[in-house]
Amino acid sequence: MRSDHETRAPMALKIAAACGLLFMHVPILLIFVYAFTTEDKTFQWPPPGYTLKWFAVAWNRPDVWSALQLSLKVASISTIVAMVLGTLCAAAVSRSKFFGREAISLLVILPIALPGIITGIALRSAFNIADIPFSVWTIVLGHATFCVVVVYNNAVARFRRLSGSLVEASMDLGANGFQTFRHVVLPNIATSLLAGGMLAFALSFDEVIVTTLTAGQQATLPIWMLEELVRPRQRPVTNVVAMIVVLVTFLPILAAYYLTRDGDQVAGQGK
């Protein structure tokens, strides 16, 4: 038990913690300010004036739209693949103790534990060896590989909570394997699957390192951003896109958080 006098933090700790949080948030907030600046050549601070016109400019840029479209497409397909593979893996691992369980967990975590560039180069050279032309599908292949882990982590945690006796109870009451899955397993893991899917989506939507290596001519939104970072063309548009990307990734993260906050493990810890 924690006693009352203990719930008061020393002032120095409070300040240090606040500084830490500020350090994590101020840079992102700055982007929001820059999206409204009237200055279009430099990164002048404080902005000389504020305007909404860059939103209109960004809105009318076809390259932004096509990059966004590709990103959404890749993220959606990768998420679906990752959800299927991650759930299968989690179900297999939690359902029985078999030889090599640990190895499977390790295998799933590997694509995210290894630096992205290794995954990227490995897949790229494999595509070259196998003579597979780069396309949307090579990007999806790369993304799904490292998205499996977030779905898996969420699903494994929930499967662990779904006590084995629920499945047995369902079978006991006359439901065969498929009926048990539909009426008992699925309703109980649905939220964690959804949360895992959202995180996978956010992860894929944002990925750049593996993407640059597995994409051909296609530009996802992060690749578009990267090009703007290396060779800036129209800074205010980049500002606006950056802000929108932040907002778009926040939504699935918040949703995933609310879907799993009652659980023993909250989503996203294994990014």
Partner: peptide, 23 residues
Amino acid sequence: MLPLWSSYLVKIYAWKLILAKEG
């Protein structure tokens, strides 16, 4: 969580803004 999941490139971009000469 939010900074963790914020776009990696956007985070780098933010520092480009911060560290810029006129930043």
